[in-house]
Simulated scan of single mutants.
Amino acid sequence: MMKKANQYANHRFSPEVIETAVWLYHRFSLSFRGVEDLMAHRGVIVSYETVRRWCMKFGPAINAH
Rank of each mutant, 00 (worst) to 15 (best):
M1C: 10
M2K: 11
M2V: 13
M2R: 10
M2I: 12
K3E: 12
K4E: 15
K4L: 13
A5I: 15
A5S: 15
N6P: 04
Q7D: 10
Q7M: 15
Q7K: 13
N10T: 11
N10V: 07
H11L: 14
H11I: 05
R12Y: 08
R12A: 07
R12P: 02
R12M: 09
F13I: 05
S14F: 03
P15I: 05
P15S: 13
V17C: 00
E19N: 03
V22L: 01
W23Y: 12
L24A: 09
L24H: 07
Y25D: 05
H26Y: 13
R27Y: 06
R27F: 04
R27S: 09
R27Q: 13
R27D: 11
F28N: 14
F28M: 11
F28Q: 14
S29Y: 12
S29M: 11
L30A: 06
L30D: 03
L30G: 06
L30H: 03
S31N: 07
S31L: 07
S31C: 09
S31Q: 08
S31W: 07
F32M: 06
F32Q: 07
F32Y: 15
R33T: 11
V35C: 05
V35Y: 01
L38G: 03
L38P: 02
A40G: 06
A40E: 14
A40N: 11
H41E: 15
R42S: 12
G43R: 08
I45H: 14
V46N: 08
V46G: 08
V46D: 06
S47V: 05
S47F: 03
S47N: 10
E49H: 09
E49F: 06
T50M: 13
T50W: 01
V51S: 01
V51R: 00
R52I: 03
R52K: 14
R52T: 04
R53W: 07
R53I: 03
R53D: 10
R53E: 11
W54Q: 01
C55F: 02
C55R: 00
C55N: 07
C55M: 04
M56Y: 09
M56D: 11
F58G: 02
F58Q: 02
G59W: 01
P60R: 00
A61G: 05
A61V: 05
A61P: 00
N63K: 10
A64G: 06
A64I: 08
